[in-house]
Design a protein around this nucleic acid. Structure first.
Lengths: 212, 212
DNA sequence: ACCTGAACACCGTTCAAGT
DNA sequence: ACCTGAACACCGTTCAAGT
């Protein structure tokens, strides 16, 4: 074992990661800047680059550290219910850290610690009788739906925070009933209807449509 | 009609919008900066602010101008097929301008000119026998899936461009077969399997699961 | 009325120098 | 080996001044 020499470190990778998590909790991902993070760890922005290659790597570290804490619930035996339960668990994990979706969108699969979810969704699909290829398709379809739902939820939250009439409201306000009879029919109830949580409904539909 | 006085304009809103579309076509949304756009219209960044409130408004204008050009295909009569066809058309429209999803994620509905899609998806769902509430749920679920699929596609494209081993590949490389038997089984074929276009398969599953 | 240039308050990151 | 400060090359946007 080589003797470590030189100046002893003031900050560690672990410290940086927990500080970053704290910053995101307070100010959102957009609030996580290298300078702000430096302040949080009581150092300078440039010191961080000595422990982490760049901001992207930091986000991946953050992801892994969060993934490690995820619960691995007992899943029902019946294949269709099993798939739905695993998907709902994945959705819950992401709901707690919605920024993770933005980081993960790059890959249609979660980080190391979160492989549990795809594993069990693929497993459920295969237990239901799908081939490996079909099971992977099923997982990806569920993932796209899940990621899309979370993204919309995040965006809707931001919109509500900012307040004011949204583009959507203005669009609905001067809607031509002749051209859009169905949307006009729903009309003003749109906001109320779109606030409902329909995630589970969607996964159940997917499970029914995808599994034999 | 009041007489317009003062310095005649050198650039117009329409010019700005078409220039912005050109910039995005060449350099992607990330490449669309006010300074870059100014160069494209042959003016200064600040001149643009005289025609457009801010960058967000510019993106909405861009969206509307694109939406106006969208085809409105004849749809099949049979409700389930009708829903699938409308969704596929929406997916195609977004595939051609993937940045639109990023702008639209804010609202779970398209811009004025693109209302055609939700209108017909809701219509198909109601023709199939769903209540207005259920039909809106169905639309939103289809929208989340569609947006998620496009986002993943965009991200995958970027990843491929940048090249090099991705995080995902590294994750798969040292996969514990005991902990993740199903994923290990698929293993190296993952990249090949996830490259397949499964959008239509997903919508068909949704249609089957959501409609009576 | 429309356009311009300089400037502000930010980014992530590099570089050369310190301890 | 680790940290620092100054600096670079960017952002979107504001402001005061020009034509």
């Amino acid at each position: 074992m080589p003797t470590r020499t030189g100046r002893p470190p003031k900050i560690s990778r672990a410290e940086i990661v927990t500080a970053a998590d704290r910053v995101i909790e307070q100010d959102g991902v957009a609030g996580l800047t290298m300078r702000r993070l430096a302040k949080e760890v009581g150092s300078t922005a440039m010191a961080i680059y000595h422990h982490v290659r760049d901001k992207d790597e930091l986000l991946l570290l953050l992801l892994d550290s969060y993934a490690a804490t995820l619960p691995k619930p007992e899943l029902p035996r019946e294949p269709r219910e099993r798939l739905v339960a695993a998907a709902v668990a994945m959705h819950e994990a992401l709901s707690a850290r919605p920024w993770a979706v933005e980081v993960l969108r790059a890959d249609d699969l979660l980080s190391v610690g979160a492989l549990w979810y795809p594993e069990h969704i693929v497993d459920a699909a295969m237990r239901a009788g799908l081939s490996p290829e079909e099971a992977v398709d099923a997982y990806r379809i569920v993932w796209h739906y899940t990621a899309g739902e979370i993204s919309a939820r995040v965006a809707a939250g931001k919109r509500r925070e900012e307040g004011g009439t949204t583009y959507r409201e203005r669009v609905f306000a001067d809607l031509d009933p002749a051209a859009f009879p169905r949307l006009s029919e729903v009309g003003e109830r749109w906001a109320e209807l779109t606030a409902r949580d329909t995630y589970a409904k969607g996964v159940r539909a997917l499970a029914q449509g995808l599994l034999p």
